[in-house]
Amino acid sequence: MSRIKECFKNLQADGQTALIPYVTAGDPEPWVTVPLLHALVEAGADIIELGVPFSDPMSDGPVIQKACERALKNDVTLNSILDMVKQFREKNTETPIVLMGYANPLEAMGYENFARKAKAVGVDGVLTVDMPPEESEEFLQLMNSHDIDTIFLVAPTTSAERMQKIAQHAKGFIYYVSIKGVTGAAALEINEVTAKLEEIRKYTSLPLGVGFGIRDGKSAAAVAQVADAVVVGSTLVRCIEEHANRPQDLPAAVASLLAEMRHAINARDLASVSA
């Protein structure tokens, strides 16, 4: 069983919602990333989305764009990110890691080369924002043969027909983009999200994560009510940006922000169990 599958199985058995923080690898400095990942797990992260920075992040808002720029200034590459995962795995063999980014760095490394190296260091899944199922045939085959889960996005604009197609190819979980827009752009509308998740469930039994519009404990808890996983990105990355000049304080600051969300989600999970 894949680490991601096992993680959701355990959480569901306990009636809990997964909390998935996103941080950009190497932001603001490469050495911060591994301690930060451990601090996130400590604060209640169930799965970690580790962003692979790209020079032209066209689906991201200004917060994550700047994170990419900070990381790239330090010459962070896909290779050095795989090293970070390897280091993280020295102390943590349980928390699933999903690499999230754009197609070009993967193309540059070569899909097969990437799949082999990623599996070897303990990467569990990959989410390539600009690679829809239409363009993924070779990629999917190689990820599948190396047991790396391929996570896909579903958007408010996704038709039923496409949902079906995406569901066929998705592994691990499906990530629902809760707003029309870039990351960190607007607050989500919980009723719309609920309706869309119901629709997606017609086509898949995979866990559903929701991200792109979650800013605080309150919105995290609201999403936890209807989703299997809550993804938090820009809010954490903004905190990283604020601490860019004192990176030694950064893991604790980001972790305490995540802990608030964990707390809010747990309170809601508990309330719905007792209700």
């Binding site: 066209m58 689906s59 197609a103 924002v129 600009d130 690679m131 829809p132 239409e134 363009e135 896909f152 996005l153 579903v154 958007a155 408010p156 604009t157 996704t158 038709s159 496409r162 995406i166 983009v177 029309k180 827009g181």
Partner: peptide, 12 residues
């Protein structure tokens, strides 16, 4: 060529 964009734009 092809279509390498985020899911939100695929419909459009």
């Amino acid at each position: 060529g092809g279509r390498f964009v985020g899911e939100t734009l695929m419909g459009a």
